[in-house]
Amino acid sequence: MSQAKASILLVEDEEHLLDALKLNLELEGYEVTTAGDGVAALKAVENEYFDLIIMDVMMPEMDGISATESIRIRKNEVPILILSAKNSSTDRVLGLKKGADDYLTKPFNLEELLLRVEKLIEKNKKIQEKDTIGEAYSFGNNNIDFKAQEATNFKGEKIQLSKKESMLLHLLIENKNEVVTREKILQVVWGYNVYPTTRTIDNFILSFRKYFEEDSRNPVYFHSARGVGYRFVEGE
């Protein structure tokens, strides 16, 4: 681990387990804040930055799945590891669908938990360190001004971009050469309260090809990964 202590929010209503987990996480060098239910967890997230949340499912006031969903609705991308006594595939899928990054069933092996915690925190740090692209970006003979929400394409044509077009372009370019999942696009561009169809996002990609590709039928920059998401590839 790096010298800077990673901070963890531990959400668990079972006092003995809470104390044992807190002690073991602190022995690993983490700073640990605790909460006894989902409501307290949401308050903590509003007031403090965390590198990871360990979230129990069965709790009073607000359960862990609802708390996870609420955190994601607020567009907070902190990694969330769910702990649950429910071990069916249906429960696991629900937890992941609501925004959890990992799901561990009780009873669990402490060493496995600590390993998963370390992996999630390291993965999040790499994402945080990713270079941002700033207010303007050029590729090929296309130029985009994100602040003005406009572009000049390879033909010299001025294109006025909608807010969502600009946001989606920014997201794809910032993650260039990587597939951006449909779920990630939903979270960043539309928010979780609105669910566009896959066709809606496809239409945005088709527009980008029309704007920026010399041959829209054989795209160089904007690609669809069928059933997964979309990718911007930096051209030669």
Rank of each mutant, 00 (worst) to 15 (best):
I82C: 14
L23H: 14
P79L: 14
G29D: 05
T68H: 02
R92L: 13
D91Y: 10
K86F: 03
M55N: 09
T34K: 11
M59Y: 00
S89D: 08
K86W: 02
L17A: 15
V45K: 12
E12A: 13
A40W: 01
V45F: 07
L42I: 13
L23P: 03
M62W: 13
A41M: 02
L81W: 00
P60F: 00
E69A: 11
K43V: 01
V93I: 15
I80Y: 00
E77N: 09
I80S: 10
L27M: 14
V78S: 04
L27H: 12
F50H: 03
S84C: 07
D51T: 11
M58K: 11
N24A: 07
G64W: 00
L27I: 09
G36W: 00
L94T: 15
G36P: 01
I82T: 14
N24W: 12
R72V: 06
G29T: 12
A40M: 04
S88I: 06
P60I: 05
A41V: 05
N76M: 07
T33G: 07
T68F: 02
Y49A: 03
I53Q: 04
E61Y: 03
E69G: 01
G38C: 06
D91T: 01
T34W: 01
R74P: 01
K75R: 14
V78L: 08
F50K: 06
A35F: 00
D13F: 01
L10W: 00
E14M: 12
E61H: 05
I54P: 04
L25A: 09
N24I: 11
T34G: 09
L17R: 11
R72D: 00
V57F: 01
E15V: 15
M58W: 00
Y49F: 15
A35R: 03
E69V: 03
V39Y: 07
M58D: 13
K43S: 09
K22F: 07
A40L: 06
Y30G: 03
S84P: 13
V57E: 10
M62Y: 05
E31A: 03
Y30I: 10
A41I: 02
S84Y: 05
D91W: 05
I54D: 09
M58G: 01
K86A: 03
L10K: 11
E12G: 10
V78G: 03
R72Y: 13
L18A: 13
L18C: 12
S88Y: 02
G38Y: 00
V39Q: 13
V32W: 08
P60R: 07
S84D: 12
V39L: 12
L17P: 02
D56Y: 00
E77S: 11
I53V: 14
A41N: 05
A20D: 12
I82K: 13
L18I: 11
I53C: 10
L81H: 00
I71D: 01
V39W: 01
R72G: 00
M59K: 04
V45P: 08
D19W: 10
P60L: 09
E31V: 12
A67L: 04
D56P: 08
A40H: 02
I82G: 13
A41T: 08
K43A: 08
S84E: 11
I54L: 14
M59C: 06
I65C: 08
M58L: 10
S70Q: 09
R74Y: 05
D63E: 08
L42W: 10
I53H: 01
E46Q: 14
R92D: 03
N76P: 02
E77D: 04
L81Q: 10
E26Q: 15
S84G: 08
E31D: 14
L25Y: 11
E12P: 08
A40E: 12
